[in-house]
Design a binder for these strands. Structure first.
Lengths: 294, 294
DNA sequence: TTCCAGCCATCACCGCAGGAGATGGAGCAC
DNA sequence: GTGCTCCATCTCCTGCGGTGATGGCTGGAA
């Protein structure tokens, strides 16, 4: 058994088909077939059940899969660790909610860029759901998302608390009045996982089970939409003060229990922490100061 | 980079010489040289400084070493996990102090052997020091040793507490009287790491800094030696009642703080737990019942 | 000093694992 | 039936990696 075999095995398991795995690995199907077969021979048991429309993992294959995911990752970490001599350099990919990036991250990133000129910093915006998945599969080194995230494979560090508020059309006085009027529609940023879930939960507690949904790609579009009375949204209160386009909107305060959301920095547990990431974390904890890892 | 490269790298690092690593790996030196070189080229940095009398790790090499130890281990775990279908079988190597084996393990192992007839159980006796090292390097799957063991790479589960007593020549009334008489000599089983350390610490607290030492390979020899007045030893009180050869020896009770020792079961943290090991642990916790992992 | 015993680097040689490509059979949709 | 997508198998062949010989280097022994 070899790390190359495991990579191949993992790709086959993920695609459920040897031919598609071959395409991903830039090789030919016959090759994949042969190596999986030799892997099975080496281990002494079948890893896949062959069906006419692809393959499925056997019990033994299911037991191998977690190792097939970990070992190539560990090899990649090893290569990074060797190259990392302590001075931050290379590529650092950080995920963030768009609202967090707009509101909180600018000064941190500016300081960071000054301190680590050799780092190519990439900021990848996304929703909490998307970013959690990205951290899991290693496509970002870490991400600022809405906590808490209950996943034993991930490690979260609290960063800061944010106050949320409901935005509604100008002149709106209270959320309950809106609800009483019926036909509440919510407006979210993209699939806006965590804010949308919070807003839906919040409405559900007030007797609105499944509000209509509208989804936009930019904050400005959402503001315009809310201003026009087409729906309400949930966003950090601090954002409203800063953002162009939000002037005039009604900002409805929520009870404290529903209003605060904690932003955490998420990393894959056990993953290699490059110097570039270590410096960012140090600076972030100094800047935001909600330290104490969870 | 490849798991095979890492195995080779690790062997070279451990031996400090490519030629000796080649011998261990059953290959020739030119091969090791070439693969290390290609590994270095692939990573883009030197891993070893070549000297006339061997090689030494560079900084980068030191960063790679922990990965080179983990990844081959993980591969071996993967192979075991695949073969382990839930029914305990195969080889299970358990370390234990000889005194623990003699006093406590027999009923557990008898039950276990009955429950898991397909397991080849190997009991490897040793001192706490030796067994801790054996657990670390994976040559035993787990071991019963004297706790606590402070090593973040190891995981310990408390099993039971044992009362220790000092054995001395027949007729001896008190430890202090012996010490006052001067020339205290201690008798231990092999290099008898933990009992010896305890006995030395115990004497040091009573003003005897570095007692003379005698070392024997069997309990019977120790009993005979103590009976002849050649020295004292420290052993589980329960052992004295059972063991042949201990009759007539003076059993000196110690203050409770010094008398009790906790026996823990030690495993490498994160290592694969085979079904065979899982069953043993379950039975051990049922039998000894000092559960709650640490 | 010379000699030797280790060490590592380099070279030429070669076997074979493993990649490429073609073919065939099996199931499924139409 | 035809056509599609699977996987298995076969042949061919490149190149990685193993082998063994040689040479350079250093340090210690004679």
């Amino acid at each position: 058994m070899d790390a190359g075999d495991l990579r191949m095995f993992e790709a086959v398991a993920r695609h459920g088909a040897m031919s598609r795995a071959a395409a991903e690995l830039h090789t030919v199907q016959s090759n994949v077939t042969a190596r999986i077969r030799s892997l099975e021979e080496g281990l002494g048991c079948r890893l896949f059940d062959r069906g006419p429309a692809g393959v499925t993992l056997t019990e033994a294959g299911r037991r191998l899969l977690p190792y097939a995911e970990r070992i190539p990752r560990l090899l990649a970490d090893a290569a990074r660790a060797v190259r990392d001599d302590g001075t931050p350099r290379g590529r650092l990919v950080i995920g963030s909610l768009e609202t967090t990036a707009a509101l909180r991250l600018a000064p941190l990133l500016a300081t960071y860029a000054g301190a680590c000129p050799e780092v190519d910093l990439v900021l990848r915006p996304g929703t909490t759901c998307e970013l959690v998945a990205a951290v899991r599969d290693g496509s970002v080194d870490g991400a600022f998302v809405c906590g808490p995230v209950a996943d034993p494979a991930l490690e979260q560090r609290p960063m800061f608390r944010e106050e949320l508020a409901v935005l509604a059309a100008p002149g709106t006085r209270a959320l309950d009045a809106l609800i009483a009027a019926g036909n509440v529609r919510i407006v979210v940023l993209r699939a806006g996982c965590s804010y949308r879930q919070r807003l839906e939960a919040l409405l559900a507690r007030r007797g609105v089970p499944a509000p209509r949904l509208m989804e936009f790609g930019t904050l400005e579009a959402i503001f315009a939409c809310v201003a026009a009375g087409l729906g309400i949204t949930l966003l950090p209160r601090a954002l409203v003060a800063e953002a162009r386009g939000a002037a005039g909107l009604a900002v409805l305060t929520l009870p404290p229990a529903e209003a605060t959301v904690e932003t955490v920095f998420l990393r894959r547990r056990g993953a290699f922490a490059s110097s570039a990431l270590a410096v960012l974390l140090t600076q972030a904890e100094r800047a935001f100061g909600l330290a104490a890892a969870a």
